[in-house]
């Protein structure tokens, strides 16, 4: 009788564990299916798109399913409701020091023609001009703060102050948005400096991205 009871108990645990594992596996596959469905929707269009894979700590820049660039998320903080996996439109990029486009002055061009050409200076918007600290505002009040990995004391202090302001503002903004019956999601991503510049460079307003956070 004792042996039979032990057998039943063992069987119960085995079934519970395997059911749990199977349901986790199914949930994972369902999430992946949704991600693939969303990507298929974007890959059908002749545009470039980003996939912010917060689960695996990766950012992909792709077009037509072709991987153009892979970036690593060094650190991630998430606040808000879990997001549905679907294409989302970038409404705005905002930064304290936004890169300015060079305004071409025809008068100056004329002057330059007559002066020494060996001292020609390139006036262009290049990757190095892109900010490393900025905020991306997506549809449905999703705010992604991108920050570079701190290297020196000053940048560590700056990052800490930005993180504290993000940390303190998120519950207040949640309450504020809730009063206005709007959703609110705040994501804080730390990436390396070059990747931060790359994201700002390639991600254009009104373009679509997928934020994967099952």
């Amino acid at each position: 009788m004792k042996a039979f009871l032990c057998f039943l108990l063992a069987l119960f645990f085995a079934i519970t564990i395997s059911t749990e594992a199977m349901s986790k596996n199914a949930a994972g596959l369902e999430d992946k299916t949704l991600l693939l469905e969303s990507e298929l929707e974007l890959a059908k269009k002749p545009h470039i798109y980003f996939i912010f894979n917060l689960k695996n700590g990766e950012i992909f820049l792709k077009s037509r399913g072709v991987m153009l660039k892979e970036m690593k998320i060094e650190d991630m903080k998430f606040w808000g409701r879990p997001l549905d996996t679907k294409p989302r439109t970038l409404l705005k990029k905002s930064s304290l020091f936004e890169p300015k486009r060079e305004k071409i002055d025809p008068e100056k061009s004329k002057e330059n023609e007559t002066t020494d050409t060996s001292s020609f200076e390139v006036k262009a918007l290049e990757l190095k001009d892109m900010p490393t600290s900025y905020r991306l505002v997506f549809h449905e009040s999703i705010f992604i703060s991108i920050r570079p990995k701190a290297t020196g004391i000053i940048s560590k202090l700056y990052n800490t102050s930005r993180y504290v302001s993000w940390y303190l503002s998120r519950p207040i903004l949640t309450v504020w948005n809730s009063i206005r019956s709007k959703p609110f999601t705040a994501i804080y991503l730390t990436v390396n400096e070059e990747d931060a510049r790359y994201i700002y460079w390639s991600l254009t307003e009104n373009s679509e991205s997928i934020i994967y956070h099952p």
């Binding site: 369902e30 409701r81 519950p171 309450v175 099952p214």
Partner: peptide, 26 residues
């Protein structure tokens, strides 16, 4: 923080996700 956490975590399941896919075998 407490109110924000409550509001932010309301509906904290991927119910919408499950609805889309439906119950399917592995």
């Amino acid at each position: 923080e407490a109110v924000g956490f409550y509001l932010a975590s309301r509906g904290h399941t991927t119910i919408s996700t499950r609805k889309v896919i439906g119950a399917k075998s592995l």
